[in-house]
Design a protein around this nucleic acid. Structure first.
Lengths: 144, 144
DNA sequence: ATTCATGCAAACGGTTTGCACGCAT
DNA sequence: ATGCGTGCAAACCGTTTGCATGAAT
């Protein structure tokens, strides 16, 4: 329902100048609905007729990351960084190794486990990164 | 107790020619006891007086990886790849963000969770990557 | 008017590769 | 003797940066 996101205010709140590029980038990432590469953002913008330089995309994402507006991820078999809107809810992703879609998975099974580990091993666990992979529902029964 | 590993046989079994370099590299990784960077392996060898080229380390690790003798990892905030001996047991690591040691953690809390997810979302989960970070026991109470 | 954002091209750092030579089998 | 392993240097690719210009406040 809230299709028109208030990126202007979001940027203003973070003391970032509100430029066309920054708005478009936020829009592209938001609409993607899954973690996207810098290049993907760049190409999408080009496709939309936006004249922008790749380094600007890098710099804007860096700035957004610094203010916590986006989150940076990566998958182990790929060297490229991934970005997504910071939804503020703790969640993980499932990567389909066939269609390469990344599907969000709500919740997290690690809270209790980490608490137990902290007690057992004396760690102070500050965070974790969990990424699952396999076949999604629609790719599962397709042949190779 | 089994300090002398039989890397020769290991290599032979995988149809890899048994060279000094390959033995030394396996030895260095094995002795490290935690995931190590390519550069670290290279420097350790130099330190031991082994004349080797960095690209050879890369190529050997690639070969070992292909035969499953080693496992490749990475941590999200670092761009370098990490390698460790493939112990064949499913385990994860805890990275201390202060001393940068990676401590192995036996077991895995995800089996049941993944089973539940598969049923709920129709995925076929083939694997996962979990990495935890925070402060280890000895760094925990040290001041910054 | 000032500050910060941007484009361009060059630099960077980890990794890969082509080629000629050398060693294990 | 053959094929695979290695060293060297150059290429590669994602990312970062210096500098001069342009736009938002």
């Amino acid at each position: 329902m809230d299709e028109i996101k208030d990126f202007k205010d979001l940027l203003k709140k973070e003391n970032l100048k509100c430029t066309k590029h920054r708005e478009s980038i936020l829009d592209v990432i938001d609409k993607a609905g899954q973690p996207v590469t810098v290049e993907a953002v760049y190409l999408k913008l080009k496709e939309q007729g936006v004249a922008i330089s790749l380094s600007t995309v890098y710099r804007v994402l860096e700035a957004l990351l610094g203010r916590g507006l986006v989150v940076k991820t990566s998958v182990n078999d790929d060297s490229k960084a991934l970005f997504e809107i910071n939804s503020m809810e703790h969640k993980h992703h499932f990567l389909c190794v066939k269609c390469r879609k990344m599907l969000p998975v709500d919740g997290c099974p690690l809270e209790d486990y980490e608490k137990a580990l902290e007690e057992k091993l004396g760690f102070s666990i500050k965070g974790h990164k969990l990424e699952m992979f396999g076949y999604c529902r629609s790719c599962r029964y397709k042949d190779e």
